[in-house]
Nucleic acid binder design. Structure first.
Lengths: 246, 246
DNA sequence: GGCAGGATGTGTACTGAATACACTATACGT
DNA sequence: ACGTATAGTGTATTCAGTACACATCCTGCC
């Protein structure tokens, strides 16, 4: 993002972006067995919301949300999946005014950014330790929150988190494949702990391993993971998907 | 809808609706064992597309799509379910210009209705015989097409139909409950034929009945359906759902 | 009135996926 | 070397979904 420029920011927004439309990303991360979600605090308001942004006229929504994610975390190549679009009539983002005001930008009261905005929700799973969280014009504070101990969010963003979580859990295999949430090679217990963190419940080791292998999601490598202070574990990597058409 | 008024239609659209946003409805109907989809022909172009409309600034998207459905079919109370939002960068609706031009309305080339529009897709199942299909400003022709024998559609509407169908089939129980696709009381074979039409495959009678009853979707009534020229069948009605919270 | 035909009603067996569960093996720390 | 913590592995059960055959009842024809 550019540095805040009182005069041109709003004009640029109007010229380059689709009005009344935003994308929001529910970014889940796993750290130390706790499920985290990335939230931002609108400057000057103390209110928390989901990271999001506007869609440029020449970019697809998918590209827009990838860009937003990159701007906020410096992560690219992450699988972002659309899960729902929120189009209630009462969706207005008063927090935007405060955020912009904190940067010396006055927004006309009738500007669309303060009014009703339809928001397309995307969900992603990322590695907390790889994300380089960076504040922006919209967010003076951006940080990971424990999912079970987070502030309440503006408008319907709490609902978005709930839906995103449900969606992420139901597509967990799909969302984890080929992501950077795990190193290129990993052990089965590592993969299982990740699943458990995301699903919020414990899984049986034997059933878990059986399922991963039966689904052909991972393939075992000849090496063992040494260096840990326990029994060495087999290492695995994501299996190449054999292209199955619809 | 109002009668086309060259001067005010566009102004009204700008004033009352959210720009660059539309809702589209994939309306499936079953008739004589064939799965139908409601399509409209943009006036003057001969190109076919899904019914749709714009979202008023004071109504929710859900309300907007219900209104569109009502305007086109006079059906109300139908369950419409959002299934996906289409936000590709190349979404422009040239057909709109022709449709409006056919009504003597000239659209400036840079107006948003001709440019990129993000479209929120909804799906519904309705009774073909109850729908009173009515042309509108946007559609000079509106009719049911056999799903397997339909014209190709503009932009990504063919993709929308595919996704909608997949979504409808996976939620069939949910979409059929309490709808007007069947009379208040119906027989099990009637319900089964409806399922078969929507799913596009035949089902086993015993398994089907067992499943419907096990899921508690229907409850048997004391009466038999007479008057048919076969063995009389039990009648059923939709069972009241015992409110289960998430 | 009897009989053939077609549609309706019903229960059991099989298969596959998910679940529950216990013991052996290895490295580290003492 | 011995205890402990973690990793590796197979079998039995349950549940959902699927496959399948025969009796019943009404209609229409003879």
């Amino acid at each position: 993002m550019k540095a805040p420029d009182p005069e041109t920011l709003l004009a640029e927004l109007d010229r380059e972006c689709l009005p009344h439309l935003s994308v929001n990303a529910v970014i889940f991360g796993a750290h130390d067995g706790a499920l985290k979600v990335l939230l931002m605090e609108s400057a000057g308001t103390g209110t928390w919301s989901l990271p999001g942004g506007y869609v440029r006229r020449t970019e697809s929504m998918d590209d827009a949300v990838s860009r937003v994610l990159f701007e906020m975390t410096a992560l690219s190549g992450t699988t972002l999946r659309q899960f729902h679009t929120f189009g209630g009539a009462a969706r207005g983002e008063a927090a935007v005014a405060s955020a912009l005001h904190a940067h010396g930008i006055d927004v006309p009261a009738d500007h669309w950014v303060l009014g009703r905005v339809v928001s397309v929700g995307y969900v992603a799973l990322v590695d907390v330790s790889q994300a380089r969280v960076a504040p922006s014009i919209w967010a003076n504070s951006l940080r990971w929150w424990d999912l079970t101990d987070r502030p309440s969010l503006i408008i319907d963003h709490d609902d978005m988190v709930q839906r995103a979580l449900k969606s992420a859990r139901s597509q967990i295999d799909d969302l984890l494949v080929e992501t950077n949430l795990l190193p290129p090679t990993f052990t089965m217990p590592e993969l299982q702990r990740l699943h458990e963190t995301i699903l919020g419940r414990s899984l049986d080791r034997r059933n878990f391993q059986k399922r991963m292998l039966e689904l052909g999601l991972v393939e075992r490598l000849p090496d063992l993971r040494q260096g840990v202070r326990r029994k060495p574990a087999f290492t695995y990597r994501w299996a190449r998907r054999d292209g199955g058409s619809a």
